[in-house]
Design a protein around this nucleic acid. Structure first.
Lengths: 349, 349
DNA sequence: TTGTATGCGTTATCAC
DNA sequence: GTGATAACGCATACAA
């Protein structure tokens, strides 16, 4: 009698996890039949199906994805490259992406590089080696090598948090509209001169769009934007604090400040608090809300709520559609909503 | 002449991505040699090595991980199951885990279920099907089926944010010590009666440990803990707000409140602010800091800083060691540090 | 409905 | 140092 490929009872022999052949042997059928029992149950007779399933259950059979992937040429796995993942607003997006994919049987392979390596084609290569069926990338400004590799390997992809790209589908929101909503609100309150605490725009296309949207809206409303009233800084609480101090030191006549994100806003509020500047009595503050702790601040921040979670969901749906081969064309822009809170009020004087 | 397995130049034929055989053909060597050139360059002569590498480069060769996994019986992939991933303190931990693994050539397969499914063995099964070499699980209280499956498939694993388990290695911190540090600080300020805003302890072993640690420390210091001064609630800003209102409505004589996490603390501070209760003049507030926005609050919170990122790093190292087969025994407990800020002060009166 | 045979792209074990 | 060749475990086209 030839050795069975599994020999669980033999001491000293590592009990290799059960394979299709093991299940087949136990059920008294061929391997092919087991395969069908698991993936196309309706192709089998009631009797053998239950018998096979029972055998699989008994052996604790778990399919070998590598073998399956090799045979099927797909892994049911999606790769995502999302830099600076830790303390950012990205986790919400990624969670939503994962949830949407998981519901369709796909698993997320996450690549979370440091900022510097975020656009390194080697990261994509690592994902491709893992056989990802599709890829999600953060932002539209990817190096050409990325798109080339994606094309060479015929992998569907989506650009997260991006408005538009000639290279492929994007999921994002209208950055300019978001800024416009904030500016319109402040203008409606009578503010005429507005300051901006912008995130660093170097190598960050999203921050650039955000800043441009704000300045455009300010111009449209006929408001003033002193060049000295724009402070660009890395993101962070301490940075927001310092940026607000710098802004005040420049003695521009701003009565309202828009912060590019929650961290900067938190720092800015803290700086105003320490300086004894009443918000909003002496200074109004508003912010892009991409991290959802605006309501935790003091006073709670007026924000445009950015559809971060929705980006993840929508991207997941789009990827799944691409994998089915019926992706709709176009780049869906998700809505943003203004949430007015105590940090904005009428312009003083 | 037989068809080459790749036929890039033939119109209409999808240019399947290059395989080892393609590279071999181009370089005029055998497939085995190409494999060696890529994984054990020193086993080849200088000449063939460069020739092979050039061919691989020219074809944009990317290894097929499925085939490799099938042959090597490993995927260089680690799975993690981390529920309620979105707005929690877990992303920091996961990012650190991913970074540590990535530095060693491993990729993270992320499973981020909703709370309810967090302990579903099916999630682990999905990961095992993907062939993960090792697994990271959140918390020590996993169903037996989890550990059984892990054992059956001989997969090393680590329990994140857990102190101790008979089932396997844990990486975490001393919850009781963390609570004790907060209580000692408040006791030192003269507080005698302390309230607790606890996270929900149902089905949450971490919240249970946290609460027990606090009550034990309170007892050790001979302080008072009115039963009515413990409010248990789901985590969240609104919940913290309501919990603090409830606590005050009960009219217990507490002069200090410990919040189990940042969200609850933020809500609690907000409730006190709205009620016109001065912090810390009339009420001190301290918190476990697991989400790193304590400094954003008003006033900034006194906290014990929990080593979340460190858990991820340490878990990654431990997993890598297990995969090498030289994992050190024991469950390393990471240190916590007390950070005193403006939200705590002497007990009034 | 079920069994058989082949291929998926690597790695590893042999010879040479 | 290099080339054949045999697994690896599954899916699938085809035969029965």
């Amino acid at each position: 009698m030839p050795l069975p490929s599994s020999s669980a009872a033999v001491p000293g022999t590592p009990p290799r996890s059960a394979s299709l052949a093991d299940v087949a042997a136990l059920a008294g059928v061929s391997a092919g039949t087991v395969s069908r029992a698991l993936s196309r149950p309706d192709m089998l007779s009631e009797a053998t199906r239950t018998r096979v399933l029972a055998a699989a259950e008994r052996l604790g059979y778990v399919a070998n994805g590598a073998a399956r992937a090799l045979a099927m040429r797909r892994t049911f796995t999606v790769g995502a490259i999302v830099p600076r993942f830790g303390r950012s607003s990205f986790p919400t997006m990624v969670q939503a992406l994962e949830a949407t994919l998981a519901a369709a049987g796909y698993t997320l392979l996450l690549s979370a590089p440091e900022r510097e390596r975020g656009h390194d084609p080697a990261l994509l290569r690592a994902l491709l080696e893992r056989g990802v069926d599709a890829v999600a990338l953060l932002g539209a400004d990817q190096p050409p090598a990325m798109f080339a590799a994606l094309a060479a390997h015929r992998r569907p992809f989506v650009l997260l948090w991006a408005e538009h790209s000639a290279e492929g589908p994007c999921v994002g929101f209208d950055e300019a509209d978001a800024g416009a909503q904030l500016i319109a609100h402040l203008a409606g309150l009578g503010h005429r001169s507005i300051g901006i605490l912008s995130g660093s725009t170097v190598d960050n296309e999203r921050a650039q769009r955000r800043l441009r949207g704000l300045t455009a809206a300010i111009a449209r409303h006929g408001l003033q934007l002193h060049p000295a009233a724009v402070v660009e800084t890395e993101t962070g609480f301490a940075q927001g604090f310092a940026a607000m101090q710098a802004l005040r030191a420049r003695r521009t006549p701003v009565t309202a400040v828009v912060c590019a994100n929650d961290y900067l806003a938190a720092g800015a509020l803290s700086a105003l608090d320490q300086a004894g500047v009443a918000v909003p009595a002496q200074m109004s503050v508003a912010s892009f809300n991409d991290n959802d702790f605006s309501a935790f601040l003091h006073p709670p921040l007026t924000t445009v709520r950015l559809p971060i979670q929705e980006i993840g969901e929508q991207a997941g749906r789009l990827l799944l559609a691409s994998l089915r081969g019926d992706a709709p064309p176009g780049n869906p822009l998700l809505p943003v909503t203004l949430v007015v809170r105590a940090s904005t009020g009428p312009a003083p004087g």
